[in-house]
Design a protein around this nucleic acid. Structure first.
Length: 116
DNA sequence: ACAGTGACAAGTC
DNA sequence: AGACTTGCCACTG
């Protein structure tokens, strides 16, 4: 637990990802920006692999800036991610998503909801 | 302290 | 489209 009244970077990232609506996707860099951590996309990928037991985080809605899934095409994780996305109506073709169609564009109220 | 390692990004070729 | 290079920063041995 963070005894502080202050969120850790990882917590900010998890919370930001939880605010991605179903049926939409966001890039690592975008999550970092929204979490108040510009330029730290790598940290996003890092903490996604360290989600605590029991915490629900829609990790599969996070992709590369190109729209490519972060995992190698054909890998178990990539297939699982693809399945979860398609259940939400997100089209995944050749290991990538068209951000023009499914990219999340948070509105002002959602951005203000992010506590820094 | 230091070098290597990442579910990345942006720029260049 | 693919391949490299540099910038990032937390973590690990």
């Amino acid at each position: 637990m963070n005894n502080q009244n202050q969120l850790t970077n990882a917590e900010r990232i998890w919370r930001t990802i939880q605010s991605i609506p179903a049926g939409k996707v966001a890039s690592y860099g975008q999550i970092a920006d929204l979490a108040g951590l510009p330029g730290r996309a790598r940290l996003v990928g890092k903490v996604l692999g360290q989600v605590p037991e029991g915490m629900v985080v829609p990790w599969y809605r996070v992709l590369r800036s190109s729209g490519q899934l972060a995992f190698t095409k054909g890998s178990l994780s990539a297939e699982k991610q693809k399945g979860l996305l398609q259940e939400e109506g997100v089209v995944v073709l050749n290991n990538r998503v068209k951000l023009m169609l499914f990219g999340w564009k948070p509105d002002l109220s959602e951005m203000l909801a992010m506590d820094f």
